[in-house]
Computed example of a mutant assay.
Amino acid sequence: MSYQIRIYMHPDVESVRGENTLALWEAGWPRWVDELAEAGKLTQTRSDNFPSLYRGAASDILPMLPANRRMSPALYFTPELLQERINVCPRDAELGIEIWDQC
């Protein structure tokens, strides 16, 4: 099963797309999300249906991003642009994680 995973800034903003996006890729279920949640470093804010939503500190989330994120084709999210955003993201920022089932 494949999932689309999006990491974004400003989780209180309704739209997580656009300039708030830090990372976007498709992969299997990110087990590190479960590990961070079990350690009390992530809060699940939605679990009733997809997308699954989580919140946590950039200092906990950003080091967990896989080195080889296979992005879905996108006009606005080049790997270089997203890496620039990650590089300047404050480590004390609260981030959101959005996970969609891509069956």
Rank of each mutant, 00 (worst) to 15 (best):
R70I: 04
I7W: 08
M9Y: 07
W25I: 02
I5N: 07
Y54F: 15
Y76I: 03
G28M: 05
R6A: 04
R70H: 13
R46K: 15
E38Y: 00
Y54H: 14
W100M: 10
I7E: 09
L81A: 11
E38Q: 09
L81S: 09
L65R: 07
G40R: 04
W29Q: 05
M9A: 15
N68F: 02
L75D: 10
P63V: 07
R85C: 01
Y8A: 06
P51C: 10
M1I: 11
P90T: 11
A58V: 02
Y54R: 08
L24Y: 09
A93I: 00
T78M: 06
M1W: 07
A58P: 02
E14M: 10
N68M: 08
L95W: 04
E26Y: 01
G40K: 04
L53R: 15
A67M: 09
T43M: 08
Q102A: 06
E94I: 10
L42H: 13
E14H: 12
G28P: 04
E84R: 15
L62A: 03
F50L: 05
P66Q: 12
D101N: 15
M9W: 06
V13C: 00
A58C: 01
A58K: 01
T43H: 07
A27F: 01
T21F: 01
I99F: 00
S15A: 14
A23C: 09
C89S: 12
F77L: 15
S52F: 15
W32C: 09
A57K: 12
L95Q: 05
Y3F: 13
I86H: 02
A67K: 14
R6F: 02
P79R: 03
P66F: 03
C89A: 13
Y3P: 05
A39W: 00
N20K: 08
G28A: 12
A93P: 01
S72R: 13
Q102G: 00
A67S: 11
A37D: 12
L42T: 05
Y8P: 02
P90H: 08
N68H: 13
